[in-house]
Computed example of a mutant assay.
Amino acid sequence: MKLQRKNRLRGLSLGALAVTGALALTACGSDDTGDSGSDGASTAANSSIKCDDAKGQLLANGSSAQKNAIDAWVKQFATACKGVQINYKSEGSGAGVTAFTQGQVAFAGSDSALKPEEVTASKEVCQDGQGINLPMVGGPIAVGYNVPGVEGLVLDAETLAKIFDSKITNWNDAAIKKLNPDAELPNLKIQAFHRSDESGTTDNFTKYLIAAAPDQWKYEGGKAWQAKGGQSAAGSSGVAQQVKQTSGAISYMELSYAKDGIAAAKLDTGAAEPVEATVENATTAIADAKVVGTGSDLALELNRATKADGAYPITLVTYEIVCDKGNKAETLPATKAFLTYIASEEGQKILADNDYAPIPEEIIAKVRTTVASLS
């Protein structure tokens, strides 16, 4: 099954964006890539990116879910801003939050909002301030599978819970047959893969199972995988590679990783029709989210047990975590310039072309206001 590529944005062409490993791009530029206005802001041709006083190296770490989005953003930002080097290590949400609370990075990416104890820890590095959550990237967590001869697979929360808890172990199980009466399901062992590293993707996937299949998924959830059994791999790219090369495999990954031969299951949520993992369906789900953070914190609460038509429930929001006050003086200009760009209309438009969901306007408008107030 080929995933539908919906909501393509006209006139937006990013070129080749596949970048592996940690990204370190330097904006060396030339005279014809930008100009400086009377206020000192430098902008690239055909771009609204403002560099202001941004310079030097910007270190960041965290979510591998947003890596493809970060790659695309840095490509554009580096073209516009001279003398700025951004190095984003996609070591997972847990590693990113730890690096932030230890003062090692200017900002972190996390697919889960900061916990109270992490906010407390952030106050040690944010002078007179604290770490806040800025929702910047949305997207569906696809359930990728590799079952020869099976297209358009439909699964539901209870069946997924049993598969990832090693209670359903074969693809011709009666529960899967019931959801796929017309499919020729093979007598093939299920190879369920989960993340080996602490991951916001794991946190969001298991939050869905807790909300939608509470009788089957008895684990408390979190960034670390808790169920017994199965196999593991590091990062979104790691589990995607395992699914691609392993017959009978299944795992959870961001939509941007579910490609090149990996099919994505539809979810029977109780809606009129099974829901596909698409950018459009993820945006529908995010639009129903509530802001539960206080003050300048914009943490969201998603309705993971939704049965609304066209709402894909296994959806995550990746936060950029930054100090509201007390950011390091040497990195603050570059941090604000980059976050201002990615929260802008231009920056958000890049997401849909890379299988991510833009943050709904009502929420991203609040993000822009908060970024402007960082100090």
Results as ranks from 00 to 15, higher is better:
239 V>N: 04
155 L>N: 05
78 A>M: 05
150 V>Q: 11
5 R>S: 12
100 F>V: 04
35 D>E: 15
13 S>D: 13
319 Y>M: 06
266 K>M: 15
193 F>Y: 15
127 Q>H: 15
32 D>F: 14
22 A>T: 14
114 L>H: 02
3 L>N: 14
217 W>L: 00
114 L>F: 05
307 K>R: 11
161 A>Q: 08
12 L>Q: 08
234 A>H: 05
345 E>C: 00
163 I>D: 09
333 P>F: 07
182 D>E: 14
154 V>P: 04
273 E>V: 07
106 A>K: 01
165 D>V: 02
371 V>T: 06
332 L>C: 10
304 R>A: 08
314 I>R: 03
12 L>K: 12
3 L>P: 06
92 G>L: 08
17 L>H: 08
183 A>F: 12
112 S>F: 13
266 K>Q: 13
309 D>M: 01
101 T>R: 06
59 L>P: 00
6 K>F: 00
200 G>W: 01
199 S>M: 12
266 K>D: 04
150 V>F: 12
145 Y>Q: 09
99 A>K: 05
302 L>M: 14
11 G>K: 01
77 F>D: 01
56 G>C: 04
350 I>D: 11
355 D>T: 05
259 K>D: 15
272 A>I: 00
193 F>K: 09
260 D>M: 02
349 K>W: 03
92 G>N: 13
32 D>G: 14
74 V>M: 05
101 T>L: 01
65 A>I: 05
258 A>W: 03
290 K>A: 13
294 T>G: 11
303 N>V: 15
342 I>H: 09
14 L>D: 09
343 A>D: 10
200 G>T: 01
262 I>K: 09
8 R>N: 12
149 G>Q: 04
171 W>L: 06
117 E>I: 06
58 L>I: 03
329 A>D: 12
312 Y>F: 10
338 F>T: 09
115 K>H: 06
333 P>R: 10
62 G>E: 12
337 A>S: 15
294 T>K: 15
126 C>P: 11
246 T>D: 02
107 F>Y: 14
217 W>M: 01
368 R>V: 14
330 E>H: 10
306 T>C: 11
131 G>A: 00
250 I>T: 13
37 G>V: 10
221 G>N: 04
64 S>A: 15
209 L>Y: 00
78 A>R: 02
173 D>K: 03
340 T>S: 15
292 V>L: 05
213 A>F: 00
136 M>N: 05
362 E>F: 12
77 F>E: 07
207 K>R: 15
75 K>E: 07
368 R>F: 13
336 K>A: 12
3 L>Q: 10
16 A>Y: 11
367 V>K: 02
308 A>V: 07
75 K>S: 06
315 T>V: 07
372 A>V: 09
